[in-house]
Amino acid sequence: MAVLLPLRFRILHLMSTKDTGVTSTEIMQELGSDYGKEKQFKKKAMEGHLISMRALGLIEVETVSIDEKDELITSYKISEFGTGRLKFLPQAYK
């Protein structure tokens, strides 16, 4: 897969392959080799992408917890609406 998908579509695709929710840290670990050099691929920007995707109804919150540093950890999963948008992905991602 030489041509990269737009990051938000790739996040949506990643979530569609998981049985449980994923955190922003897990997304960054999994997609870092492809998107790691992009300016939008930073922790704060990733949180913004996920908030926007949730507002659009593409993903939903699965769990919320507090880690040992008292930081909020949110796990997201693809929504039914988001699953319907996967039809717009290139064949290589289906």
Score class of each variant (00 low, 15 high):
Ser75Glu: 14
Ser75Arg: 15
Leu58Met: 08
Leu31Glu: 01
Thr63Gln: 13
Asp70Ser: 14
Arg54Thr: 11
Lys69Trp: 06
Thr20Pro: 00
Glu62Gln: 07
Leu72Arg: 14
Phe88Val: 14
Asp70Cys: 04
Pro6Ala: 12
Asp34Arg: 10
Thr20Ala: 13
Leu58Gly: 02
Ile66Arg: 15
Arg54Pro: 00
Ser33Met: 08
Gln29Ile: 10
Asp67Ile: 08
Thr17Asn: 00
Ala55Ser: 14
Ser65Glu: 10
Thr23Glu: 08
Met15Gln: 13
Leu72Asn: 05
Leu7Cys: 10
Ile59Arg: 10
Thr74Met: 14
Gly21Tyr: 11
Pro6Glu: 07
Glu26Asp: 11
Lys69Gly: 00
Thr23Ser: 15
Val61Ala: 01
Gln29His: 00
Leu4Ile: 01
Glu38Ser: 02
Phe9Gly: 04
Glu30Phe: 09
Thr63Ser: 13
Val22Lys: 12
Gly82Arg: 03
Glu80Met: 06
Pro90Arg: 10
Lys94Val: 01
Pro6Gly: 04
Glu26Lys: 07
Glu38Ala: 07
Lys77Asn: 00
Glu71Asn: 13
Ala55Tyr: 08
Glu71Cys: 03
Lys37Ser: 13
Pro90Trp: 11
Phe9Tyr: 13
Ser16Leu: 09
Thr23Phe: 08
Ser16Cys: 13
Asp19Thr: 14
Arg8Tyr: 01
Pro6Thr: 06
Leu31Thr: 01
Ser16Glu: 14
Ile27Arg: 02
Leu12Arg: 07
Thr17Leu: 07
Gln91Arg: 11
Tyr93Ser: 12
Val64Gly: 13
Ile59Lys: 09
Phe41Leu: 09
Gln29Trp: 06
Leu56Arg: 14
Lys94Gln: 10
